[in-house]
């Protein structure tokens, strides 16, 4: 882990991973979308609206997964002062917030034909909305500090405190018996979805994960370059000031 606290080494690793993650994302998303939208059979009750699942479920999983990743890298950053872990957490937040928003949006579009309403104050929907607000608060806290190291540590503490929401979302459908259906993919007796719908769904989940990794690499790379640019500019300003003083 400490090997990759060095930005140059991290950038080299990122450059090696990027083509693979981009290829996997493109292939899985492309194949999963075509399979899910055109070839998978319609559900016997829900008809064609079941196809919303191929976006909704991966987005929901990623919204929680990205937050978990953000909390873990925040913990690593707090404990070991790992510079890249800070950047990973910072770069993850907008991506996770977008997944969270897509999940809420598609869920709302799916809820209208199935439940007859765009929105219910059901435990899972509410906790997902809270998660979106926690993402937004996290991003706002990063913006509030001028000093990047302070911003990083404050945001990391908030990310860890907000992580308490994760198990609440995961188990909300089991603790409270509500409109949202309980888990059907990851259960003790294996998936409860027919294989004709399961395979395109799994493809989409892998695709979403690879897409996240790809965008994350782009964003972290941009952050590293931005910091380097700022340091170079400051060094140049120092040199300039020194030269003027010498004259």
């Amino acid at each position: 882990m400490h090997r990759f606290a060095n930005p140059t080494r991290f950038l080299r690793l990122a450059a090696a991973v990027l083509p693979f993650s981009a290829a996997v994302a493109a292939l899985c998303l492309g194949a999963g979308l075509v399979w899910g939208l055109f070839f998978a059979p319609p559900d016997y009750q829900q008809g064609d609206t079941v196809r919303i699942m191929f976006i909704h479920v991966p987005a929901a999983m990623m919204a929680m997964g990205v937050y978990a990743g953000m909390a873990i890298s925040s913990a690593i950053a707090l404990i070991w002062r790992h510079a890249i872990a800070d950047l990973i957490a910072k770069a993850s937040a907008p991506i996770g917030a977008t997944f969270c928003f897509i999940c809420l949006l598609t869920g709302s579009l799916w809820g209208k034909p199935m439940w007859g309403t765009w929105w219910v104050w059901d435990a899972r929907l509410t906790s997902m909305l809270i998660m979106l607000f926690i993402y937004l608060g996290y991003m706002a806290l990063w913006q509030a500090f001028d000093d990047q190291t302070k911003a990083a540590r404050a945001a990391a503490i908030l990310a860890l405190v907000g992580a308490i929401n994760l198990p609440v979302i995961k188990f909300s459908v089991e603790w409270w018996n509500t409109l949202h259906q309980p888990a059907s993919l990851i259960t003790m007796d294996g998936p409860k979805i027919h294989s004709s719908l399961l395979w395109p769904l799994l493809l989409m989940i892998v695709g979403f994960g690879a897409y996240y990794l790809t965008v994350l690499i782009f964003r972290v790379r941009a952050e590293v370059h931005q910091r380097r640019t700022r340091m170079l500019r400051m060094a140049q300003a120092d040199r300039h000031a020194a030269m003027q003083a010498a004259e």
């Binding site: 607000f133 937004l136 608060g137 706002a140 806290l141 404050a154 503490i157 908030l158 907000g162 929401n165």
Partner: peptide, 18 residues
């Protein structure tokens, strides 16, 4: 978290309410 931060009050609300 927001002590001594610009526009701390609004940020505080955004962080704490959820």
């Amino acid at each position: 978290l927001t002590v001594g931060v610009r526009r701390g009050g609004v940020l505080l609300t955004l962080i704490v309410t959820p």
